[in-house]
């Protein structure tokens, strides 16, 4: 009774394996040569806009990882002002800073990957924070992930 059923299951398992041996789907993005196009509102590395900042320091206060700190910066023709800087050694990409900024001075970019040679290099003081995350050193082929009924995820060149 048991044995024939087991043999059937063995054959089914082998056939399923064989099916995937000839089937097409693959779920690999050849990162970094290829990179995904990220959806709108993706919580990447935030970018700072100095003009809009009101120095309220809410971003630094809500930051759960203490990654954002307020730096005192000399501004021409004005008094000293406090601007946020970010330490990417600590950032956990929760996006609270962007969401709480009442002036819209912080916004998400779609860049989430940045490599550096030193830890100090990952500390972005207000100046660099305003420049935004450094662009990738080479241009990857961009692909857009699309959910698909047949293969699950399709990466469409875009």
């Amino acid at each position: 009774m048991e044995l024939p059923k087991r043999v059937v299951h063995h054959i089914e398992a082998l056939l399923t394996g064989a099916k995937y041996l000839v089937a097409k789907p693959r779920m690999t993005v050849m990162y970094p040569e290829e990179a995904q196009i990220l959806p709108e509102g993706y919580r990447g590395m935030p970018k700072f806009n100095r003009e809009k900042c009101r120095s309220c320091s809410l971003c630094a206060r809500i930051c759960p990882a203490n990654a954002i700190k307020m730096y005192t910066v000399e501004v021409e023709g004005e008094k000293k002002k406090k601007y946020p800087g970010i330490n990417y050694n600590r950032c956990i990409f929760c996006g609270f800073c962007v969401d709480i900024c009442p002036a819209g001075a912080l916004e998400f970019t779609d860049i989430h990957d940045y490599a550096s040679y030193s830890l100090e290099d990952l500390v972005f003081k207000p100046d660099r924070f305003a420049e935004g995350p450094p662009p990738r050193p080479f241009k990857p082929k961009l692909v857009k992930p699309m959910l698909d009924e047949e293969v699950g995820l399709k990466y469409v060149p875009g």
């Binding site: 394996g17 995937y20 041996l21 789907p25 693959r26 779920m27 690999t28």
Partner: peptide
């Protein structure tokens, strides 16, 4: 290669 193909990899 065979294992990778079955496992949706390269």
């Amino acid at each position: 290669k065979i294992a990778a193909k079955v496992q949706l990899r390269y």
